[in-house]
Amino acid sequence: MARLLLLLLLIPLAAAGADCRPVPHAMGVSCIADQPQRIAVLDSGELDVVLTLGLQPVAATTPSHAGQFPVYLRDQLAPTVDLGVPQEPDMERLAALKPDLILGSKLRHGRYYPILSSIAPTVLSERIGASWAENLQLFAWALNQQDRARRWQQQFEQRCADIRQLAQQKQQPTVSVVRSMQSHIRLYLQDSFVGNLLQRCGISRPLAQQATGFAVRLRSPVAIKQLDGDILLLSEYAVERGSLIRRWQHSGFWSLLQAPASGQLYSIEDSWWMLGIGPTAALRILDDIEQVLISYDVD
């Protein structure tokens, strides 16, 4: 409550004498132009939000191992300056572009906030991933696109309800989401983007993947049974640079899994399942889930 009061006090101060809208965010309050024209985004989640709301950024970062903008956004994306990896955006290049709004997260860019806000008004979300829906609201406010965000939200709720109903029809099969990296396997839990999305839309997860937290990391196939579910969705990050699951698939341990044996192993696209962490990615994931559920036979 005290924080809110402080915020209310600060808003008029920040707004005083400027032709801009005050937007409170994770690092304070920033004063933003009525319609920002030159938007820079520092992570794939923010990139997804900006494109979902029908705008184009002037600059964006690229996920470190992929070395390119997420594949599923490429068609929507006009030529955009590459700022390097999200963890260390290229500040000089960013400053040279003279943006009028920078979007990022406190989690990844909080320590750069003084620099960022000296370049342009900056709005940072608290976290990334599981907070994607709140981030959409925050950035929609910063971008002055609340109407579009609201319409998107309605569309999403509808899709989500369809999926929930479909899952119920199929007697709630458990869906395991596995991401294979170079040297470990990740199982995403509730506090991740995918985990949060699936939970919102009533998809059951295997017992080992129901915990709170971001992800479980496995390095040894001893715990391979944690990967199992009625349906196993497998995503591989930068396959050309090695994917641990391939080694497991060649070992005897793979035969312990039920899902592949019963034809319920599906390859999913890393770019929107894992890299996107934004609203457009979320709808794509629901499309995939729908396909998989439709072809799932209840015995």
Binding site: S64, Q182, S183, S220, R241, G242
Partner: peptide, 20 residues
Amino acid sequence: NQHALEQIRFWLAGSLSYVE
């Protein structure tokens, strides 16, 4: 090359954790 570092990190420290 950051991804090479990730790949080779365990080997560089010396490891028997996954024998091919």
